[in-house]
Every structure is written in structure tokens, then in C-alpha cells.
Nucleic acid binder design. Structure first.
Length: 424
RNA sequence: GGAGAGGUGUCCGAGUUGGCCGAAGGAGCACGAUUGGAAAUCGUGUAGACGGGGUAACUCGUCUCGAGGGUUCGAAUCCCUCUCUCUCCGCCA
């Protein structure tokens, strides 16, 4: 959520920056009027309340002195009626205002390239050598099926499309990656490990920005107010909701493994094969709570920590700086890490690292105090995948495939795979 | 799932015949005094949100005693709904 005061003051400048996102922001135009109306009602209602408080005092005094207060009471009945009407009106106006504000995306940071589509994302960095095969590299779903690691057929029977069974060494590989990533981030990068709830209520989903605008992208549990988390970002960011942190606690850094659930509405026909786009997948997520002045530096750091995973796995990747059109609703700036997939000769997103500035913190009311006497300020929140496990499996299968169909294992994973060098 | 108890400021904790309660008292914390220094002691201070005014320090007002409604001239105190915590029973991993 944007700061309403800032929006009021710099309306046209902010509007212009938001337009670079290229999405419909017509909601925004209603803001000045509703905001103005809200403040007018507040002033009127508060003046009446002041009067009510004063007269109530007088009544109280009169009553104590056993004097007659009927004329004042009669007068106040009308005042009270007016207050009630105004309060009702205020509630409606604030609701409207809130609905507008909750649907306005974050302002792109000045360093974000302006663009009209994902075509305009800017290449930031490339790492690693694209592997040469003396044969036609196979897609990971064929490799996985042939080696008995992945069973999409059975998953289709049991749960439908966009699900998978990881089986045997495939399941072990999934688990190995989770452990490897968590170990790396907790012991090398200073993160506190977290295993969060997979179901959260509506306030949490609103806090990180999934609701109200993107309800169709998530699974809601019938007959309850709970939603399946689309990412551990949701529970972990909301871990500190409604809190005022101490400055010396910052930065806070959490590494959370969770399954993630996405309805993938609107993705019909896209990435229907393989592990790329599933209703349920595993991910290790990095979440940071930082001081505002540090957040961009921390974004670089967070991104490099996610990159470290790819480097240790020796998977070729590139880093893209997302342009204004491809930022995502809540982000002020975002880098995507894209891993090389030989079968399709493309880079595919495997991690997304974002700085949300105070956008989520304002929604979830997460603040900190610089020192005892200072006013609470909103923290900045950041997160990044470190990494998506399913897509990492896909990348390993494809990049490490051998002519004979075996998969060589990256060295860092071998301790997690009973020392095996190959999956065969 | 059934029965009961309870949610008050940073924490503990008073406050149920509605008015003088934004809230006693204590602890903690901050600042000051005292001290060679510390402890102890004494004094002062110690929430947030929103709106108005001011360049600002600041100031005025409204609201907040789990959340949201309601009754009333007036609610921490009465009523309703929801929510969370605890205890017992049931059920389960």
C-alpha cells in the first residue's frame, strides 16, 4: 500500500510513475476525491464529538450535584444522531478509500528500467558456461520418467494435472536440495530457519499483497477463511505483522522451506509438461526485514545469496532486472534469476528477488523504532527464492544429463545423496 | 467437537450499582539529582493512529482497555457477533 499522505502530495508524479507499469490504474483517479471527502467528514464529526464530550462533562457534574440536566440531554440527542450518521458515512468512505489503496501497485524505483513488456527486461549479468552435448538433450520430464524419479501420470490419476509424484531417488533429490539450500543460507548467509504454516487467513494474504487483487491465483479452503500459501513469503513476512521492532534487531533474515500452492488460473496451455508450472511445488524462500536506508544494498546481497545456490550447483544462469511492466504488484524493484534449460534452449525463471520497500510493511503494519524516543517507522521488506526446488530439479536433470541417460550429481549434493555420483 | 475461565498501556496488575478512567498501583526503561564510581534512594518522564494549525520545535482535537457492531446525553464497565489464549472432557498425529 502506498502512503496516502505522499499520494496526496505528489499525486501527478506518482501517477506518472505508476503508468510505466502499463497496467490499468484507473482506480487511482478516484483517490483525491475520496480522500478529500474522508477528511471533510472527519473534521465535521470530530467537532461534534468535541461538543459531545464537553456537554457530557457538564451533565455529569449536574447529575452529581443533583441538578436538572434534561435540556442538555435533549440537545445532545440530536448531536448524537448526527455523529452516528457521520460515522456511518465515514466508515463507508474509508472502506472505499481502503479498497482503492489496496489495489494500487507499488511505485517502481528510479533504477528500474522503463519498459512495456518482459521483452524490455534488462540483462544484468550472465554466469556459467552453457553445456555442450554430443547428443540431443532431453527434456527433464522424459529424463525423470525414464529414471523413475518423476511420475506425472500417477499424479494425474490421483490429483489431476499440474501435480507430480517425486519417487525414489527423485524424492531424495528433492529433499537433498531443500536441505542443501537451507544449510547454505543458515550457516553461510546468517538466516534463521523457519518452517511456517501452509494455511493463512485473509489478513496475512492482504498483508503481502496477494489479496484483494489476486484472489483467483490462490487456493481458498472451502467453508473457512483460510488460504493455501502461494509462497512462504506470506506467513514469514506476516510473522512480524502488527509489531514494532527494535532497531538493533534489524536486519532480520529468515530462510523458510515450504510447499507452495498456486491455482495457475489463466495459465491454461502454458508449460503443461514437466515441473515448470505446478499447482504445488517446493521452495526455499529468503525473507528480510531491514531499515529503509539499507534496503537496496540488501536487495543486491539477497540476490547474490540466491545466486550462490546456482553457482554451487554449477548451473548456468543470468540475472535480469525487471522492467516497469514486469515488476509484480508489490515490488519496487525486482531481479529474476533465470537458469539455463538445454532442452528448450532458454533461460527460465528460478528465483525472484524483490525489494518491496514499505509497501508490505504498511499493509501488515510492521514497524521499527530507531531508538527509545523516536517515532515508529515502517521497515522495508525483501524476499527472494533461494531457490524454487522443482525448477532446480528440472535444471539439474537437463544440464547434468549424460549420453547414456544417467544424471551426474553436482558435487555439493552428493553428501545429501549418500555419496552417489550418478542417478541411474 | 462439548464445558468453563479469561483477553486492560513495554510487562505485571486494579478497575462490573455506566460519568471525576487513556485508565490506580507496581515493575521495566529514559533523563536528572545524589556518589570517587556503582548499588540504593529521590525527582521527572514514559503508547499509538487519524485529522487540523505551524518551516520547525510544537500545538489543538478525535479515537483506541482483543476486534466489530449496538444500547445511552455519556461505556474498559451493559447487550450481540467474531476472534485469540488457558483449563477439563472427547478425538486424534
Amino acid at each position: 500500500m502506498l502512503d496516502p499522505r505522499r499520494l496526496r502530495q505528489d499525486f501527478s508524479a506518482i501517477k506518472q510513475r505508476l503508468q510505466y507499469r502499463g497496467e490499468d490504474i484507473s482506480e487511482l483517479d478516484r483517490f483525491p476525491e475520496v480522500d478529500e471527502k474522508r477528511r471533510a467528514i472527519i473534521q465535521e464529526a470530530e467537532a461534534l464529538k468535541k461538543k459531545r464530550n464537553e456537554v457530557s462533562q457538564q451533565i455529569s457534574v449536574l447529575k452529581r450535584e443533583k441538578k436538572d440536566a434534561d435540556h442538555l440531554i435533549q440537545e445532545m440527542k440530536h448531536v448524537s444522531e448526527s455523529i452516528k450518521t457521520l460515522d456511518q458515512e465515514l466508515r463507508e468512505t474509508e472502506n472505499t478509500l481502503q479498497n482503492i489503496l489496496l489495489r494500487i501497485p507499488n511505485i517502481p524505483h528510479e533504477s528500474v528500467p522503463i519498459g512495456e513488456s518482459e521483452e524490455d527486461n534488462v540483462l544484468h549479468k550472465t554466469w556459467g558456461d552453457i553445456p555442450e552435448f554430443g547428443f540431443e538433450p532431453k527434456p527433464h520430464w522424459e529424463l525423470g520418467a525414464a529414471l523413475g524419479l518423476l511420475d506425472f501420470e500417477a499424479a494425474g490419476k490421483v490429483a489431476g494435472s499440474r501435480f507430480v509424484f517425486h519417487k525414489g531417488l527423485g524424492a531424495k533429490l528433492e529433499r537433498a536440495l531443500i536441505n542443501f539450500m537451507l544449510d547454505l543460507h543458515t550457516s553461510e548467509h546468517g538466516y534463521v530457519e523457519m518452517l511456517p504454516p501452509y494455511l493463512v487467513h485473509e489478513d496475512s494474504m492482504t498483508g503481502t499483497g496477494q489479496l484483494p487483487k489476486f484472489a483467483e491465483d490462490v487456493f481458498k479452503i472451502e467453508d473457512s477463511h483460510l488460504f493455501l500459501i502461494p509462497t512462504a513469503e506470506v506467513p514469514v513476512t506476516n510473522y512480524h505483522r502488527e509489531e514494532i521492532l527494535e532497531a538493533d534487531q534489524l536486519p532480520l533474515a529468515y530462510a523458510a522451506y515450504s510447499s507452495c500452492f498456486r491455482s495457475e488460473a489463466g495459465a491454461a496451455g502454458r508449460d503443461t509438461r514437466g515441473l515448470i508450472r505446478q499447482h504445488q511445488f517446493n521452495k526455499v524462500e529468503l525473507v528480510r526485514f531491514v531499515k529503509p536506508e539499507e534496503s537496496y544494498e540488501q536487495l543486491e546481497q539477497l540476490t547474490s545469496q540466491a545466486e550462490k545456490v546456482l553457482q554451487l550447483l554449477n548451473l548456468p544462469y543470468r540475472v535480469m532486472s525487471m522492467c516497469t511492466a514486469d515488476l509484480g504488484f508489490a515490488a519496487a524493484k525486482k531481479y529474476d534469476l533465470e537458469v539455463w534449460l538445454p532442452s528448450s534452449q532458454t533461460y527460465r525463471e528460478i528465483s525472484s528477488c524483490s525489494n518491496f520497500e514499505d509497501f508490505q510493511a504498511r499493509r501488515a503494519n510492521i514497524r521499527f523504532r530507531r531508538d527509545k524516543k523516536s517515532k515508529p517507522e515502517f521497515v522495508h521488506t525483501l524476499n527472494g527464492s533461494g531457490l524454487a526446488i522443482g525448477r532446480t530439479v528440472a535444471a539439474i536433470l537437463e544440464n547434468y544429463q549424460q549420453a547414456d541417460g544417467r544424471i551426474r550429481l553436482p558435487e555439493v549434493l552428493r553428501p545429501y545423496m549418500q555419496g552417489k555420483e550418478y542417478v541411474e
